[in-house]
Simulated assay, not measured.
Amino acid sequence: MSTLAQTGPSLARLTLLHARYQFIETIRVPMAVIGTLVFPALALVFFVVPQRAVAENPVYATQAVISLAVFAVMVNALFGFGLAIAESRGKPWDPYLRTLPAPGLARVLALMLSTGTLGLLAVIPVIAVGGLLTAAEASPARIVAGFIALAISAIPFMLIGIAIGYAMSFKVAMAVIQIAMFALAFIGGLFLPPLLFPEWLDVISRFTPARQARELVIWAVEGGALQWWVWVGILAWTAVSLALALVLFRRDEGRRYH
């Protein structure tokens, strides 16, 4: 037998194959896709467009579009990872997948790829509505920079979702994610601009990954100075949530085999 036959498919091929089937499985549930793609854009239509003082101001409108784009990515990451993992853990199919001769890294990368793709697609309706119905503006280069910043700031949300998925059952994860989603969105300044916050709430807001993601994307799109607490906070949330996700993954794996 040749060496190629013994080694089997590469990690990249397994990742792409697994991501393809995960994406197909996701889009087979229309409500899940519609909610991810439509809800942030509808929030922009109902809560930003009617406020002409915001919608007709290029700076305010651009920041409102960015805030709801961050919200779209956050919701997709929390639900896509948290509920997907919690649901799969409750089915006999998941332990079977772990017995297959494929690295677990391929499954994790595939989930990130499929969920990340859906998250970026969810941003497109927000940008389209913002461009058509508000005075939001940005150059193509700045929009690309904004997408890169969104991808970076989504990492903590993905890891938090993974931690929730491995720590809780599907029903509990559903409730926790809904509470966390709206709490982070409000405190992080995604629904109301931080300029309207009292001083104490503004200080608390700076410790949340939602506020840090918002400020990072605004900096990428509009330029200016990036506050030190933004990138320090993103790195800290990434490190802590990664460590927590690994601990919970190993604990869950131990429970299944002992």
Rank of each mutant, 00 (worst) to 15 (best):
M174E: 09
L42T: 11
V48Q: 09
L109N: 03
L195E: 11
I234P: 05
G165Y: 04
L42F: 12
Q227W: 05
E222Q: 14
M158Y: 13
S169Y: 02
I234A: 01
A64I: 09
S139Q: 14
I177N: 05
V70L: 08
D252V: 02
V54D: 11
R13F: 11
D94T: 04
V54P: 10
R211D: 13
S114W: 12
E215K: 12
W229D: 15
L120S: 06
A128F: 06
I160N: 08
P140L: 06
E87N: 12
A180Q: 01
L121H: 02
L196E: 08
Q6C: 02
F186L: 12
A64P: 05
M74G: 00
A110Y: 00
I27M: 04
S169L: 03
Q22C: 00
A185D: 04
F182C: 05
T238A: 06
E137W: 12
Q22F: 00
R20W: 11
I127M: 13
F207S: 10
L14D: 12
P50V: 13
P198M: 15
P92E: 10
L118D: 02
Q178R: 02
I179Y: 10
F47A: 10
A213V: 07
R206D: 06
F147Q: 05
Q6W: 02
A106L: 04
V59H: 01
I85Y: 06
T208N: 03
A12D: 11
T3A: 15
Q178A: 14
V108G: 01
M181A: 11
V33K: 04
L190A: 10
A53T: 15
A225Y: 00
V176W: 03
A243C: 05
L150M: 11
T99W: 08
T26G: 00
F23Y: 10
Y21K: 00
V75C: 04
L16D: 00
R256I: 08
L17W: 09
A122G: 06
G254D: 08
I218D: 05
L17R: 11
F170V: 08
W229Q: 13
F191Q: 12
A183S: 14
W237C: 03
S153L: 13
F47C: 05
V33N: 06
A173K: 11
I162L: 13
Y96I: 10
D252C: 02
V247Q: 12
Q6R: 12
P103T: 13
A225K: 06
A151T: 14
T99M: 14
S241D: 09
W228F: 11
I177R: 06
Y60N: 06
L109K: 08
T117E: 03
